[in-house]
Lab assay of single mutants.
Amino acid sequence: NQESVVAAQLIPINTALTLVMMTTRVVSPTGIPAEDIPRLISMQVNQVVPMGTTLMPDMVKGYA
């Protein structure tokens, strides 16, 4: 089963992602794949992401 990127903390809107903000977990439905974490660093979220929420492609500016 593929791991997806999950918020390790509350991420406010327009925050640039850092490694410490993200963790990985096997979730359903699947979100952004864990191997894309290096690509996500410094990208901004376009909404508030509560802790434990799976990051979906449409939540990250410039990802999709």
Rank of each mutant, 00 (worst) to 15 (best):
T23R: 14
V20S: 10
N14E: 06
R39I: 08
L19V: 07
A34P: 10
G31D: 01
M21G: 02
E3Q: 04
V48E: 13
I32W: 02
R25Y: 14
D58Q: 14
P50N: 12
I11T: 01
L19Q: 13
I32V: 10
S4K: 02
M59V: 04
A7C: 03
N46Q: 15
M59K: 02
Y63N: 13
N14M: 08
L17M: 08
L19P: 10
D58T: 15
P50R: 07
A64E: 07
L17C: 01
V45C: 04
G52F: 14
A8Y: 11
V49K: 00
E35F: 09
G62E: 07
I13F: 11
P33N: 06
N46Y: 11
K61N: 08
L40M: 06
T23M: 15
V5S: 02
I41W: 14
M51A: 07
P38N: 11
M21D: 15
I37T: 05
G31E: 02
S4G: 04
V6D: 00
T15R: 05
G52S: 11
A16E: 09
V49S: 01
P29I: 14
E35G: 07
P38W: 10
M22N: 00
G62D: 08
V48Q: 14
S28G: 07
T30V: 14
T30I: 10
S4R: 02
M43H: 09
E35C: 15
M43P: 00
I11L: 12
I13Y: 13
L40C: 06
V49E: 00
V26H: 05
T23Y: 14
V45H: 00
T23C: 05
I32A: 02
E3R: 04
T15Q: 07
M43T: 05
L19A: 12
T53Y: 14
V5M: 02
A34W: 06
P57C: 15
P33Y: 10
L10A: 08
A7L: 02
P29M: 09
Q47P: 02
M59L: 04
Y63P: 03
A8E: 07
V6R: 02
R39M: 09
S28K: 05
P50T: 15
A34D: 06
E35W: 05
R25Q: 12
K61F: 05
V5R: 01
E3N: 06
L40E: 00
Y63L: 07
I32N: 01
T23S: 15
V45A: 06
A7R: 02
V27R: 09
T18V: 04
A8C: 06
M56C: 15
D58I: 10
V20M: 07
I32G: 00
G31K: 02
N14I: 03
A8N: 09
V60R: 01
I13T: 07
I41M: 10
T53C: 12
L17G: 00
T30A: 12
A34K: 09
N14A: 06
Y63C: 15
A34Q: 10
V60K: 01
A64I: 15
T53H: 09
P57M: 13
K61W: 11
G31C: 04
A64Y: 03
Q9I: 04
V45G: 00
P29T: 10
Y63F: 13
L17W: 01
D36L: 13
A34C: 08
P12R: 11
Q47R: 13
Y63A: 03
I37E: 03
P38V: 10
E35M: 11
L17K: 00
A34N: 06
A16Q: 09
T23G: 15
M51N: 09
L17E: 00
T53D: 10
P38A: 04
I41A: 06
M59Q: 05
M51G: 04
I37S: 05
N46K: 15
M21F: 15
P12T: 10
R25W: 10
L40W: 02
M22Q: 01
V26C: 15
N1Q: 11
V60C: 03
A7Y: 01
A7Q: 01
P29E: 14
P33R: 09
T24K: 13
N14Q: 05
P12L: 08
A7F: 02
V60G: 02
V26R: 03
S4V: 02
T18P: 00
P50Q: 14
T30Y: 14
T54D: 01
V49R: 02
Y63W: 15
D58G: 11
I32S: 01
M43V: 08
V26P: 11
N14S: 10
T23L: 13
E3T: 05
V5D: 00
P57H: 13
A8F: 09
T30W: 14
Q2H: 06
Q47F: 04
L19C: 15
R25S: 14
D36S: 14
P12S: 13
G31W: 03
M43K: 09
L19W: 12
R39S: 12
P57S: 12
M22I: 13
I13Q: 12
V27D: 12
M51C: 06
Q2P: 14
M21S: 03
N14K: 08
L17H: 00
N1D: 15
N46D: 07
L55Q: 01
R39Y: 11
V49M: 03
T30Q: 13
A64S: 12
S42G: 15
P57E: 08
I41F: 11
T30M: 15
T23P: 00
A7D: 01
V26I: 09
I13E: 14
I32E: 00
I37N: 01
S28Y: 09
Y63M: 06
V5E: 01
N46E: 09
V48F: 09
G52D: 13
P57W: 13
P50L: 11
